[in-house]
Nucleic acid binder design. Sequence first.
DNA 1: TGTTTAATTAATCAATTGATTAAATCATTC
DNA 2: GAATGATTTAATCAATTGATTAATTAAACA
Lengths: 204, 204
Amino acid sequence: MKKDRNTEQDIIEAARLVFQEKGFKEATMRDIAARANINMAMVHYYFRSKENLFFMILDEAFRLLVEKIVTVLTNEELDIFEKIRTIVREYITFFSEKPFLPQFLMGEVIRNPEWIGKRMLENMSFLTVFRTFSEQLEKEYEKGTIRQISALSLLLNIISLCVFPAIIKPMAYQVNDCDNSVFDLVIEDRKTEVADFIIKAIKV
Amino acid sequence: MKKDRNTEQDIIEAARLVFQEKGFKEATMRDIAARANINMAMVHYYFRSKENLFFMILDEAFRLLVEKIVTVLTNEELDIFEKIRTIVREYITFFSEKPFLPQFLMGEVIRNPEWIGKRMLENMSFLTVFRTFSEQLEKEYEKGTIRQISALSLLLNIISLCVFPAIIKPMAYQVNDCDNSVFDLVIEDRKTEVADFIIKAIKV
DNA sequence: TGTTTAATTAATCAATTGATTAAATCATTC
DNA sequence: GAATGATTTAATCAATTGATTAATTAAACA
C-alpha cells in the first residue's frame, strides 16, 4: 500500500538534482532526503553512503556524455565533415536542454581527476574510437581534402567549442542581466555556425 | 622581533593555494591557517570571515584573467589577426603556468553566477572594449578580409579554445596515465595552432 | 491469524566546521 | 620601564554534517 511510489528512484532523482546543482561537498544528505520527501535515514538504507550515491550520479552523467560522441565517431556512414556537423549539433542541443550537466561534470571532475582516469580505463572503447577517427583524418589529409591537424587537437577544438559556452551560460545570463534571449539566440545559431567554423578551418 | 614575516601576506598566499585547489566549500580555515603556519584565529583577525577572504582571492583571479584580454583588445596598433594571435598565445601560456586558476574560477563562478554579474557591472570597461572589437570586426568584414561573424560568437570561440583545454588538463593527465608529455606538447603547439585555426576559419 | 522480513521513522552520535573569547605575548611610546 | 595597543595563542562554542541505532509500521508468507 505504501508502494504507490518508488523510493529508490525518488532518491536518485532528488540526488541528481541536488548534486548537479551544488556539487558533492555542498550537497547534503538532508537536502537530498528533503527533496525526495523521505526520511534521511532512507538514503543510507538504499545507498550506503553519500559517496556511493554521488558516484552513481556522476557515472550516469559521464556515460550520457561520452556515448553520444562515440556513437557518431564510430558511424562509418559519415564522412569527416558530417561527423563534425553531427557532433556539434547534437552536443549543443543536448547542453541547452541539460544545462547543469556539463557544469556538474566539469566542476566535480576537476576536483577529483583520479576518478576520470578509472572511468576511462574501464571504457577502453574510447581508445579504439579515437584511433578510428585518427585514421579517417589521416586518409582525408592524404586525399588533400583537409590540411594537417592531429586528431587530438581537432577533437579538443570541437569539444571546447561545444562545451565551454554551455558552461559559462549562467554567467552570461548574469552579465546580460535582463535579456537572456540574446545569448540563447547565439547558442541556437552556433548549432550550425560552429561546425562551419571548424570545417572552414580545416578544409584546404 | 616577530615581524620577520608578513602574516597578512602569508595568509593570502595560503588562502590562494587552498581555495584554488579545493574551492570554497571544501577549503577550511584550519587548512589555510596550517598552510600559513599560524593560528586559525589569526585568519579571522586579519580577514573577518571565510567569505571575505575567499572573495578577495576570487576577485584577484578574475582581475588577472580579464585585464589580459582587455589590454590586447584595446591595443589599436594591432589588426584583428594580430589580436587573435596575441590573445591565444598569451592565454595558453598563462594557463600552462597557472593551471589552477581557470579551473578555480570556472568551478566557483558556476556555483555562484550572481557574483560574476556584480563583478562585470563594476568593470564597465568590458562593454566598451567589446564594442570596439565589434566595430573593428565590422570594418574588416566590409573590407572583405573576413567573412561575417558576430563579435560575441568569435570571442566565445577564442576563449573556448584557450580555456577549455586548460581546464581538462588534469583529466587528460589521468587518462594518459604515465605520459603527460604528450598532452603538454599538444598544448605547446596550440599556442600558434589555435590562432591559425581561428584565422583560417574567418578569413575569406 | 501469527510470524517473519522489509521499509520507515525519530532520535542521537561523533566529527568537523566557522567563529569567538579571554588570556598571553610582543611592540611602541612616553 | 611602565603603560598602552597590536598581535598571537589555546580553548571553546554553536551549528552542521554523515552516519547509526533502536523502535515502529507495513508487507509477505505460512
